[in-house]
Amino acid sequence: MTALDDVSTNPTDQVVPERHVGADAYVHSDSENDEAGPVEMGRDTIDGFLDDIPDDAEELDLVHERLTTIENLGFERFTNLRRISLRQNLLSKLHPLPNKTLTELDFYDNRLSRIENIDHLTNLTSLDLSFNKIRRVERVEALTNLTELFFVANKISAIGGLSPLINLTNLELGANRIRAIENLDALVNLEQLWLGKNKITKLEGLDKLRNLKLLSVQSNRLSKIEGIAHLSNLEELYLSHNAITKIEGLDKNANLQTLDLSANRVVVLEGLETLSRLTELWMNDNKLTSYEDIETQLSNKTELETVYFERNPLQLEQAATYRLKLKTILPRITQIDAALVR
């Protein structure tokens, strides 16, 4: 699981489990009036900017170059170009790129407010438009070869415009303004879906995603685990920082290996009987009080390696004996909270 830099070492504090951000990343405003963040001056000139790069280059890494435009940069002479990274620049408009050979295009951390002039790039397999100011997913329908699509930290309020992208395996929409999981039925090959840090109130609209292996809906407004019974191939489920009170609805998810329910309101450890492949369980920052429930639910999990139970009443009220009790109940585990078992 990836996350923003400069977050707590507690894995459940990584509420935007999306792509890595450089330490010097420009952070745009997320206010309703689109006020600018820290002012950074653009490059004075782009004359001769790419002159030293050979014509047969297959990759261009133009990261943090203070570019305000890519128009007239002369991309057309790179006839073998497969990948362009324009991360951490000051681009506010997507000018057309002539290189139809492109398979990877990265505009992460710019100032784009709309998607345009990329529908001819039909060979693209990866497109990253994260950390911009995009409000709508649009004009990507022709990019049917895409397998990875990243929209982390934009201003998107609804999921749409993705139905033709049936080859997608990884879709990241974390840190937006999405209120409902919808319009995903056509994405039958999707394996990873990242929706952390939105405003989602219900797990729904996932029935057709039978190949989904990872689902992240951290830091939303969920109160119940539901709507995932059809996800029989699910291996990782991240639901931390919600308002869930009961562990339920996991009976059909027998392939689940990682379950994160930390920072919720769970009182009883239950509903894990069918999860025989569980290797990691994060339950810290809940309201658990019973070691007996831990023994009942987890002692037969032969593949379980890591558990997090810190900051539950069972740890806070018996801190001196907490780790010893867990090691006695679960002798096979190798990690309790952030510390390895010795």
Rank of each mutant, 00 (worst) to 15 (best):
L215H: 13
N211W: 00
R177N: 15
K213V: 08
E148R: 02
S216T: 04
K155Q: 15
L206Y: 03
L146S: 02
E204G: 14
E191K: 10
I181K: 02
L173G: 08
K197E: 11
E141Y: 09
Q192K: 12
G160S: 14
I166R: 11
N167R: 00
A180N: 08
L214A: 08
L214R: 12
I166W: 08
K202R: 13
L190V: 00
G174R: 03
L162N: 06
T201E: 15
S157M: 05
W194V: 01
E204P: 15
E148K: 05
L214K: 14
E191G: 11
N145I: 00
L209R: 05
I178C: 11
A180E: 13
N211D: 01
I159K: 11
D185R: 14
T169D: 07
S163K: 15
N176A: 01
G160Y: 13
L209H: 02
K208P: 01
N183A: 13
N176T: 11
L187F: 08
S157F: 11
E148W: 00
N167D: 03
T147A: 01
L165I: 02
E148Y: 02
T169R: 00
L173V: 07
L212H: 07
E141H: 14
G205P: 05
D185P: 15
I178F: 13
A142M: 12
F151Q: 03
L215I: 02
V217C: 06
T201P: 08
E182W: 11
L214E: 06
A158G: 08
D185F: 12
K197S: 07
A186F: 06
A142P: 07
L162A: 09
G174H: 07
F150W: 10
I181A: 05
L215T: 04
K199Q: 14
F151G: 06
E191Q: 12
L206N: 00
N176Y: 10
W194G: 01
L173W: 13
K208Q: 11
L190S: 04
L162P: 03
A153V: 01
E182S: 15
K208Y: 05
I159N: 11
E172A: 15
L146E: 02
S163M: 08
L203W: 10
F150Q: 04
G160I: 07
I178S: 11
T147I: 00
L209D: 01
N176K: 00
L193M: 02
S163H: 09
L195M: 07
L173C: 00
I181T: 09
A175V: 00
I200Y: 13
S163Y: 08
I156Y: 05
P164I: 04
V217E: 01
L190I: 03
I200Q: 03
L190E: 02
L146T: 02
L184W: 05
L203F: 06
L165A: 03
A158S: 09
V152G: 12
F150I: 04
L165S: 02
L149N: 06
K213Q: 03
L171S: 00
L184P: 04
L162T: 04
A186C: 12
K155D: 08
